[in-house]
Design a protein around this nucleic acid. Structure first.
Length: 422
DNA sequence: TCTGGGGTCCTAGGACCC
DNA sequence: TCTGGGGTCCTAGGACCC
């Protein structure tokens, strides 16, 4: 019988910020999204203040001040590094690990003699080695393991680990879970289910399978089976090949003019190409998009999108930037105030297994370009992103750069930011 | 003044082919 | 008079996740 554990870091970003600021241990902590836009992580104390996930920061400033909430801009260098440390502990202790997100991992514990004891040991060691508190759920399927971990997090008396397989009355557990809390049943789904009188996970399990298949597609049916204890989602140890690379930002202020949009798109395309090279990939197509703000109906709305196919797979920044700018001239309409733009790279293939083509540049020229990109990437790695960049005007301190006023130091990944003692 | 960014998968519909 | 059917591939849009 299959057996899965889900290891979930508690309030991950907030916990990371707290690690290097022990005086915040009992204070409410929140972490804001890019652009300091909305709340994306909350400590238990912040949740207790009623600050919801996704809350726009400006609407809660008064609460932050009055309640002494410690507010941080997101610091992905820090979170990524701590995530790696957590994952290393898991890899050391569990036979098979699937990193599911920056703060979660599934473990396959099928056939182990003492899975519950192992989970407790894992929780203890992750805490001791990294300082990050985790909750662990143990169950026959991934979907049930998610629910179990949720329960482990909510009910402090469980000591951070909950074993669904040992529950005397699993139906009662499903009855207590809301349908919308089930992994795979999102907001739209929950709304449609509610209209049919489905409130709890148990209600959902009891729906006729053919109705679920028809109305919620194969994905909904899988979720239903998983809740019944039939495992449909295997552990994915090797990460799936990446299908797209995206770089997009909301601007610090709205932009109407073409020139600053070009600068932004140029910077996004260059950053996306950098990611591509870091993973040894090439792209076959470049998509550019622009959006006006979603939340302001009084402004004229426009979403533009255009995809440009490249003559052959490439990760050469100038080619990708040029394609992105061609896309922008199609996507852009004069007279709209844009709030966000982005570049997506599609049709990804490994650079190493490249198909030769008649349209290819001569080998010397291709090698010259590769060498150029190697130098640019090397300098930017050592001296900071954007040290070397195209001269299309993507200078720092532009109006489209994001706000990030409250970022913590890069304690663990930058020598200059090492914590000082005394 | 002010509401994130980065991914995946499924489905429907059209183009194209034989 | 009468105008197939089945397969594949691609894309756009929508839903989901963290």
């Amino acid at each position: 019988m299959p057996l899965y554990a889900l290891v979930d870091c508690n309030n991950f970003y907030a916990s990371c910020e707290r690690l290097f600021r022990p005086e915040l241990k009992t204070r409410p902590v929140v972490v804001l999204s890019n652009n300091d836009g909305c709340v994306i992580s909350r400590s238990a104390e912040a949740k207790a203040l009623g600050i919801p996930m996704g809350a726009p920061a400006y609407q809660w400033e008064h609460v932050f001040r009055k309640q002494g909430v410690a507010v941080f801009s997101s610091n992905y260098a820090l979170y990524g590094d701590l995530s790696n440390r957590v994952m290393r502990v898991l890899a050391d202790m569990a036979p098979r690990v699937e990193q599911y997100s920056i703060d979660e991992a599934f473990l396959d514990l099928s056939g182990l003699a003492e899975p519950l004891a192992l989970c407790r040991a894992i929780r203890e060691r992750v805490g001791r080695h990294t300082g990050i508190p985790v909750s662990i759920g143990l169950a026959r399927t991934k979907t049930l393991a998610k629910l179990a971990a949720r329960r482990a997090k909510k009910d402090v008396s469980l000591g951070g680990v909950f074993d669904w397989t040992a529950a005397p009355d699993p139906e009662a557990l499903l009855r207590e879970a809301e349908a919308g809390d089930v992994w795979g049943l999102g907001r739209q789904c929950a709304k449609r289910l509610a209209a049919r009188g489905v409130r709890s996970a148990l209600d959902f399990v009891r729906l006729p399978a053919d109705w679920v298949r028809k109305e919620l597609t194969i994905v909904g049916l899988q979720t239903q089976l998983e809740l019944k204890g039939v495992s449909c989602l295997p552990l994915a140890e090797a990460p799936a090949a990446r299908r797209s690379v995206l770089c997009s930002r909301s601007f610090g202020q709205l932009i109407e003019e073409r020139a600053p949009l070009c600068e932004a798109v140029c910077a996004f395309a260059a950053r996306a190409a950098e990611k591509l090279r870091a993973e040894g990939l090439e792209a076959q197509a470049v998509q550019t998009f622009v959006f006006t703000p979603r939340h302001r109906e009084n402004l004229p709305q426009h979403q533009g999108q255009a995809t440009t196919t490249l003559p052959g797979p490439t990760n050469f920044t100038p080619d990708i930037v040029a394609a992105a700018l061609r896309g922008l001239s199609e996507a852009y309409r004069h007279g709209f105030a844009y709030q966000k733009a982005g570049v997506v790279l599609l049709g990804l293939t490994p650079a190493a297994s490249r198909q030769a083509s008649l349209l290819d540049l001569p080998p010397e020229e291709r090698e010259r370009r590769r060498a150029l990109m190697r130098v640019v990437d090397g300098v930017n790695r050592r001296h900071g992103r954007g040290t070397l960049r195209l001269a299309l005007g993507s200078a720092p301190d532009r109006p489209w750069h994001m706000r990030q006023h409250r970022r913590s130091p890069r304690y663990t990944t930058s020598w200059d930011d090492l914590p000082r003692i005394g």
